[in-house]
Simulated scan of single mutants.
Amino acid sequence: MSVSEGLLGAVAEVVDEHGLSGTGELTGLLAVGAEAGEGAEAVALALLTLGIRARDERDYARAGWLFELASEATVGMGDVQLWVRARALLGGLYRAQGRYDEAEEVLRAALAAAEDASAVPGSVRIDVCNELGILFKYTGKFDEAKSFYERALTLLEGNSVSDQRAAASLHHNLSGLAHSRGDFAAAVEPGRRAIATRERALGPDHVEVALDKAALAPVLIELGELDEAETLLTEALAVIEETYGPEHYETGVALGNLAALAYRREDYVRAEELFGRCLRLKEQALGPGHPELAVTLNNLAVLAGRNGDPDRARSLWQRAVTILVASVESGHPLLGTVQRGLESLGPGATA
């Protein structure tokens, strides 16, 4: 079911009038829907659409409020499918913000509701399982992450464009999971499948294909396939910058991968400059305490140590440890890496 721009505009007007007050807005929204000849389902879909737009603009406070309102609207309807979609989006939003415990609670509740309701389609269950897989990759629960990704793959039902995009995303994420575990050889096949599947669905110049290429490149760097990695990154960055602009989070991620390539080629000056730009763009998008910053902080700390600046290295590693201790499992490999880096500096290097 699609939502008319007229209803979206009317719903947005009510939302803007109330701000993030949390009082009385749902009644007004349902009244707006009734005036437009639409029911609660259309209002809930409008809220989800506006929430996704706010999320994509990184207005996370507004997005979370809209997803909560959509959840509230669906409860009155008894529409489990829409409720699960709203909660999956909210859980994904919490995960993107680094609010991992809250994300797990919301996503597990969404999955339980989806499993109890036969009316919830496979596509919605796939979204929830995929979100849980991403969450557990970040927190270091790698076996659980793999289980949810593979479970989602079994739910794929056809060969439509949407099915192919979902399959590509799951292969992309399985590759990323293997990369996080340090099993680089195992990351190559799903990474290549993600690119090939997405190209069939969307064409070779789509930004989602570029993101798949940018994700496979660091795996190839670890395996010493530097020329292919450079080709993928050059192609990917051109599309990402054209689509999102030079200041976007995804541009920062691609720059970080180019920095890793420069480091591998022993071009340490360029590597430091690119990692610095990557960190700036990630901080700009995610905030100064987000767990995704830790890998870039670690890379900059390694470079600082190589450049004979142990004080800067210590500061960067201490910051990374502080961020990770608050958000990931104690056995997470990245946490172990930054702790060992800190310990290598000797006395005074505790966090």
Rank of each mutant, 00 (worst) to 15 (best):
G6D: 15
L7F: 07
L8K: 01
A10Y: 02
G19V: 02
L20Q: 13
G22T: 04
G22F: 11
A34R: 15
E35H: 07
G37L: 03
E38D: 00
G39L: 05
A40K: 15
L45F: 04
A46R: 01
T49F: 07
L50G: 07
G51N: 12
I52H: 13
I52R: 15
R58T: 04
G64C: 07
G64F: 04
L66S: 09
E68I: 11
E68T: 15
A70P: 11
V75D: 14
L82N: 12
A88R: 11
Y94E: 10
R95G: 02
A96W: 10
R99G: 06
E104I: 09
E104Y: 10
A114T: 03
E115D: 10
E115S: 09
S118G: 05
A119S: 15
G122W: 05
V124Q: 03
I126N: 04
D127N: 13
V128Y: 13
N130I: 05
I134Y: 15
K141I: 04
F142I: 08
S147M: 13
S147Y: 14
E150Q: 13
E150R: 12
E150M: 07
R151G: 15
A152Y: 00
L153Q: 06
N159H: 12
S162C: 01
Q164H: 08
R165Y: 09
A166Q: 12
L174T: 01
A178Y: 13
A178S: 14
H179S: 09
R181T: 02
E189G: 10
G191V: 05
G191E: 00
T197R: 12
A201L: 07
P204Q: 07
H206V: 08
E208N: 15
L211Q: 14
K213F: 09
A215I: 02
A217G: 07
I221D: 12
G224L: 03
E225F: 06
L226H: 12
L226T: 10
E228L: 12
V239S: 09
I240R: 03
E242V: 01
T243C: 06
G245N: 05
Y249R: 02
G252W: 01
G256K: 00
A259D: 06
L261M: 04
R265Q: 15
R270K: 14
E272D: 13
E272F: 06
E273H: 12
L274P: 06
L279E: 00
L279A: 01
K282G: 00
Q284K: 11
A285R: 03
G287M: 05
H290S: 00
N298I: 08
L300R: 02
A304N: 06
G305F: 02
N307Y: 03
G308I: 07
G308S: 08
P310V: 05
A313R: 03
R319S: 07
V325E: 15
V325I: 04
A326F: 12
S330D: 15
L342N: 11
L345A: 01
A349D: 09
